[in-house]
């Protein structure tokens, strides 16, 4: 059985799945998927089942940075350039 992790456990984990990152940040799945594909979010990919795991603290910090830059009116290419992605 593979059970869903409680929020407490997620908050104590070094790595989280994209679904857990959605639960933590309230961002849309398609948005996170887009940022991941654009190389704006850090992740590690396990070879066996191809599941992407995101370093929790770093990924949330990056997301907050992206949100802040978007609020300043920057476009995605500009944000990417600013973040050095």
């Amino acid at each position: 059985m593979s059970r869903q992790r409680s929020m407490e456990k997620i908050l104590a984990s070094e790595f989280v799945s994209i679904g857990e990152l959605v639960r933590l940040t309230g961002s849309r799945y398609s948005t996170l998927k887009f940022y991941t594909e654009e190389g704006m979010l850090p992740f590690v990919q396990e070879h066996e089942n191809l599941t992407r795991r995101f370093p929790r603290v770093e990924a949330i910090a990056k997301l907050n940075e992206i949100k802040e830059l978007k609020q300043q009116g920057l476009s995605i290419p500009e944000i990417k350039a600013r973040m050095g992605a």
């Binding site: 059970r3 869903q4 679904g19 599941t51």
Partner: peptide, 24 residues
């Protein structure tokens, strides 16, 4: 907010590659 978090995390788990949890 609860609704969005819930459906978006479900969408992520169902559409992503990898093992799905029992709840999903």
């Amino acid at each position: 907010e609860l609704y969005t978090r819930l459906i978006e995390s479900l969408r992520a788990e169902i559409l992503e590659e990898g093992t799905m949890t029992d709840e999903a």
